[in-house]
Simulated assay, not measured.
Amino acid sequence: MPYAYCEQIGKEIRDISDEIPFEIPESWEWVRLGFIGDWGSGATPSRTNKEYYGGNIPWLKTGDLNDGIITNIPEKITELALEKTSVRLNPVGSVLIAMYGATIGKLGILNIPATTNQACCACLPILVNNNYLFYFLMSHKESFTKKAEGGAQPNISKEKIISTLFPLPPLAEQKRIVAKIEQLIPYIEKYEKAETQLTALNKSFPDMLKKSILQEAVQGKLVPQNPDDEPASVLLERIRAEKQE
């Protein structure tokens, strides 16, 4: 009989085997993303209140996400905005994910405390390596994009994010996985650069080849010379004679 994956919601225990996307090692567990951290979305303080902007608290928009470590956020809000509006201050180490528009799935890890707008969801993991969570979310980007709803501005909700199943390894293994990923990423980036160059070369190659062949042709290098051919000097005289006639 196949192993049944179960989930407890309140007092109810239900079989979620049909939701399991792949098998994991015996020492791992399937959990929902909402279980492994404190998740929350941000807000936009009213632009009409000038006292809310120009302070010293970083306020991140999804365009500031860089799929890496966030060290600089241009726009700032004030302590008053933090006190009077629903923005929340996310601590260093928080993992951010964009929920709206063309930036859906864009990620970042805070290296400075910061607030965000409502298009961004933040998680401070609990006993989970934030880099492991970051790489899991990165691997899940296509899935989040497919789940996006809406017309002009598709979006995923925080609820969809936190209900996503998450393969949870032991903490020590999470760290080993992160170390291995970061060991391999430079090779991936090097391959990506080489592939980009090859693609550009393949795209331009036919035109370059045509120019090269034509260049060889007009320089007398395309076909072998035949000493029995009538020399061009004779042809030149014939051309002059034709022109005079």
Rank of each mutant, 00 (worst) to 15 (best):
S143F: 13
P125M: 05
Y187C: 06
Y135I: 01
F136H: 06
I162P: 00
R176C: 07
L168V: 05
I161S: 01
K190D: 10
E192G: 01
V128G: 05
L171Y: 15
P167N: 10
I181W: 01
E159N: 15
E142V: 03
K141N: 02
A179V: 03
K147D: 11
Y132M: 13
L165Q: 05
Y191K: 11
A148P: 07
P186D: 09
I188F: 15
T196D: 14
V178H: 04
T196G: 11
F136D: 03
P154T: 03
T196E: 15
E142N: 07
K175P: 02
I162K: 07
P169A: 07
L127E: 15
I156E: 01
S143V: 08
N130D: 08
A152T: 12
F134V: 02
P154L: 11
I156M: 00
S139I: 00
P167Q: 05
P154S: 09
T164S: 14
L168H: 07
Q174E: 13
E195A: 12
N131R: 15
K158P: 04
I156V: 14
T164Q: 10
F134I: 07
V178G: 05
K193R: 06
L133C: 09
A148Y: 01
E182T: 08
T145W: 01
P169M: 07
M138S: 14
R176E: 15
A152F: 04
F134C: 07
N131Q: 13
I188M: 06
E192V: 06
I126A: 03
L171C: 00
P125G: 08
K193S: 11
Y191E: 07
I126K: 13
